[in-house]
Simulated scan of single mutants.
Amino acid sequence: MIKIYHNNRPNVRKKVQSMNIYPHQCRAARALLGWTQIDLASKAKIAKQTLTDFEKEKRIPYDRTLADIVRALEEGGVIFITAEDGKGPGVRLLETPGARQTK
């Protein structure tokens, strides 16, 4: 389901261009790492509600917040796969889960 916003706000299904992340990639990355929303919010140093709203496609966070999310997931061992190969965007683990620890 696509959620459209009033006041010319973009719909959330559009890729966040500056950070190259979709809400479904964020959810998948957390699942690969075995992280809860609380875990990711803590590691990214953001509010859990911000993460919840992004993953539920209710809103797009600020670029800085998205950068914090991406950083935390990448430090956890996730790499983001672009759609440039024609197969669509996704995520995969760089290493075995738990091999890298986020400080």
Rank of each mutant, 00 (worst) to 15 (best):
T36W: 08
M1H: 13
I60P: 01
V78S: 08
T52E: 01
R9D: 12
G86L: 04
R100F: 03
T52P: 00
K14H: 06
M1E: 15
I46A: 06
L32A: 10
K58M: 05
P61V: 07
G77R: 01
T82W: 02
A99T: 14
T65Y: 01
E57N: 12
A67L: 00
T65M: 00
G86M: 03
K15R: 15
H24C: 09
P23I: 12
Q25P: 06
S18E: 12
K56H: 03
I60E: 02
K43M: 09
I79D: 09
I38L: 15
L66R: 00
G86N: 04
T102A: 10
V70R: 10
T96C: 13
G34A: 15
A44W: 12
K48W: 00
G98V: 13
L32S: 05
G86V: 03
I2S: 12
N7P: 00
I81A: 05
T82M: 02
G77H: 04
K14R: 15
D63H: 00
P61T: 01
N7W: 12
H24N: 11
M19C: 14
L94S: 13
G86T: 06
E84H: 01
N11C: 11
A72W: 01
V91Y: 12
Y22S: 08
E75C: 04
A72F: 03
K103E: 04
I21G: 07
L51M: 06
T96P: 10
T96Y: 13
P61C: 05
W35H: 09
D68E: 04
